[in-house]
């Protein structure tokens, strides 16, 4: 960490430190042991972690101020790319998952051509409409994508061979869980790097005051594009993981409004100006939905997400983690650390 010059003023204690999250991380690490034989609990948390990665990926773009309502496009294209490559060509999912990320980047370039001049609500609307393009094409291109029948019987998440040992991740829920957890932690590290880097400073500056940012030498469009491509890359990878986790996809599912709404809800509710807030919201809200609301209200349990987003915008505009860490959203440490 970069140290600033010692300042005379004592360092303000943050209302809540990032270290408060360490017990949570520890719990995630040992969850398969604690959850014992319950595959259901593990499955729910595997999904929660996957949705957390989608929210983290979404937030890379939101840092630059662009709210997307169209991340299902990247998610769906990623899921289909990885699914088709492994079904049709039998390629190992170690290869198809990164390729899926790249195909999402390609779609993001197309989206950029349409949307690069748009800001705010108009950008959001254009992304909302944009999802229809890959969805309708996937739905209709029977020869390639098998259309609305979807892809059935997808191979599971990739296995791992260490010397003579072979860990088949897909064979056990525990394996899938740790695979997704590992990806989540990797992505969290990436997002932390992005936030703390010059790229992150540029994106935040663009979000706050685009004109001032360009006057200070920031090439606004270049950085907005970088944010979109990085965000699409990881959303595509998440989509691919989802396909191999669930092993069945169809256009209405992976391109549905659900996967555009979920990252937006988690990120805004957790705090889109924070690094980890979006992931936290996913890990709290999704299990809450699955363990509490789903049994109570099998049809319509997702009203929870609608209610949460309305309440957040009205009462906690910076999200709950943003609120807890108010005034400490900063990337560069300023206090005297010596």
């Amino acid at each position: 960490m970069i140290k600033g010059q010692p300042t005379s003023e004592p360092v303000q204690k943050p209302p809540i430190g990032q270290f408060a999250l360490l017990p949570g991380l520890a719990m995630l690490l040992v969850l398969p042991l604690v959850a014992g034989g319950s595959d259901y609990i593990l499955q729910v948390f595997t999904h929660a972690l996957l949705l957390a990665t989608l929210a983290l990926a979404w937030n890379i773009l939101a840092v630059s101020g662009s709210i997307s309502l169209g991340h299902a496009a990247f998610f769906g294209v990623g899921a289909y790319t990885s699914g088709l490559l492994s079904l049709e060509l039998g390629v190992s999912s170690w290869l198809t998952i990164p390729t899926a990320g790249l195909s999402a980047v390609a779609i993001a370039v197309l989206m950029w051509l349409f949307c690069h001049r748009l800001r705010g609500a108009y950008f959001a609307l254009a992304t909302l409409a944009f999802v229809e393009i890959p969805r309708v094409i996937t739905d209709n291109w029977d020869g390639l994508t098998r259309g609305s029948r979807g892809l059935v019987g997808l191979p599971g998440l990739p296995g791992l061979r260490l010397g003579a040992h072979h860990f088949d991740i897909s064979a056990s829920p525990t394996g899938s869980y740790y695979f997704v957890l590992g990806y989540g932690l990797l992505l969290l590290a990436m997002v932390t790097l992005i936030f703390r880097s010059n790229l992150g400073l540029a994106l935040q500056a663009i979000r706050e005051e685009e004109t001032a940012a360009s006057t200070l030498g920031i090439q606004v469009q270049k950085y907005r594009l970088m944010a979109l491509l990085l965000s699409a890359l990881f959303s595509g990878i998440t989509g691919a993981c989802y396909a191999h986790l669930v092993r069945y996809i169809e256009p209405g599912m992976v391109y549905g409004i659900h996967f555009s709404a979920i990252p937006l809800i988690f990120a805004i509710c957790g705090g889109r100006f924070t690094i980890i807030g979006p992931a936290l919201a996913a890990l709290v809200l999704y299990p809450l939905d699955q363990f509490l609301f789903h049994p109570l209200l099998p049809a319509g349990h997702e009203f929870l997400y609608g209610a949460v987003i309305i309440l957040t915008i009205l009462f906690l505009p910076s999200g709950f983690w943003g609120q807890l860490r108010k005034g400490h959203l900063v990337s560069i440490k300023t206090g005297s650390i010596e």
């Binding site: 609500a121 959001a124 937006l264 609608g306 949460v308 987003i309 309305i310």
Partner: peptide, 11 residues
């Protein structure tokens, strides 16, 4: 308003 009405749409 876009985000809030999006929430209402989900509701």
């Amino acid at each position: 308003s876009l985000v809030v009405s999006f929430g209402l749409a989900i509701l």
